[in-house]
Amino acid sequence: MARKSHVQTTINGETVEFLCEPRQSLLEVLRDELHLTGAKEGCNNGNCGACSVILDGRLVNSCLVLGVETEGKSVETIEGLAAPDKLHPIQDAFLENAALQCGICTPGFIMSAKALLDQNPNPTEHEVRYWLAGNLCRCTGYDKIVRAVLDAAAAD
């Protein structure tokens, strides 16, 4: 077993220190070391988007980033999105549009949608579909998800 490295990073605005093996992905670190289990493992090779987080403002699949790479960086996860007493508008829009069924892909979709709306507050339906194409949902057929993201954009 390789020796663990000490990493200091910022997660959801808080400074966090952790130890991780060089081979551990950011997803493993979030889930297994920090118990932030909102990011999900669906494929572990960057094809489903269930583990989407925002790293220094960029949307990434956390299964494709190593934990040690986050040294000195800033990570946003689903756990940091809502205020203590108020959901983020994207979260509200997902609930109001019934844009989830089993919910396993939901944190990833919400983080992807946030990354989209951060850079393009008024996307077209096609832009939403293009941007979210890296996130797989097997339950909804995407209809209500796309509507939720468009609603969240309109609400902002």
Binding site: R31, T37, G38, K40, T77, E79, Q91, L95, T106
Partner: peptide
């Protein structure tokens, strides 16, 4: 169960 599922708090088997 909506709020738990949009905030990442819902616990699935692997969690």
């Amino acid at each position: 169960d909506g709020v738990d599922k949009v905030t990442g708090r819902a616990l699935y088997g692997a969690d």
